Simulated assay, not measured.
Amino acid sequence: MTSTWYCALLRGIGPGNPNMRNDKLRGVFDGLGFTGVGSVLSSGNIVFATEATDTTALEDRIQAALRGELGIGGGTIVRSRSELAALVGTEPFGELQHARETYLTATFLKKPLEPVPEPFPEPEELAVRMVGYDPDARAVLAVSDNTSSSSPDFMAWLERRFGKDITTRTWLTVHRILKRMPDHT
């Protein structure tokens, strides 16, 4: 059986907490028997390979180990390399570039958004434009104008609208994660 590459997107990771540092996080994944374990940035992005294919079971197993070994209860969302590659391949942001003033974001949902609302909801009074929803990656895509102070409000809006089983990454981070995952096993 061949291994598949995955990324665990961990919610609520603060690298200032000693139990949330990359070396400790990687140790938990190594202890679970995953191979190729690596971290991307210090915000809870762990890449790994495994023969397991049930992502819900992987999420539950990883979260139980993080809670049991490090006391981390934030949440775990797993995406395969192929899911992330397909998302990036759709070029949902077109010619827009991620920059200090304009963040391109992907908010990953633990469960599929069913049904997908039409029209897609827009946060009122926030400097954010919703790009849409990618059902295969289970990701809500948005462009935030960071010249205003609405970013924290946008994160709160996302939780109110889609629940707490979500985690947001910048588009730049999604690309960095994908680069750390080989396209072969």
Rank of each mutant, 00 (worst) to 15 (best):
R61Y: 04
P117T: 15
V174C: 00
Y6T: 05
A85H: 12
G94H: 01
T76Y: 06
R26A: 06
V28P: 00
F34N: 06
Y103W: 15
D145S: 02
E59M: 08
N146A: 00
L58I: 01
L41D: 04
L113C: 13
V28Y: 06
V174E: 14
T168Y: 02
L87N: 11
E114V: 07
S80D: 12
M181G: 07
E114H: 09
K179H: 10
E91N: 10
T185M: 10
G44N: 01
E124M: 05
G38R: 15
T55N: 09
P115V: 15
T2N: 14
W171P: 07
F34W: 11
T102D: 14
L109H: 13
L41R: 11
T35D: 15
E124T: 08
G12P: 01
T4C: 00
P112L: 04
L25F: 05
I77N: 05
A52N: 05
L70Y: 14
A64E: 15
C7Y: 02
R67G: 09
Y103A: 08
A52V: 03
N19R: 03
Q97F: 03
R100E: 10
R176C: 02
V28H: 02
A86V: 06
L84H: 02
A8D: 10
S3G: 10
S144M: 11
M181D: 05
T102I: 13
T105C: 10
V37T: 13
Q63A: 03
I13V: 15
E59L: 03
R129W: 03
F120M: 04
V47Y: 00
T185S: 14
I13T: 11
G71N: 10
G163S: 00
R21W: 05
R11W: 12
T76R: 03
P135S: 11
D136F: 07
V40R: 05
P18L: 03
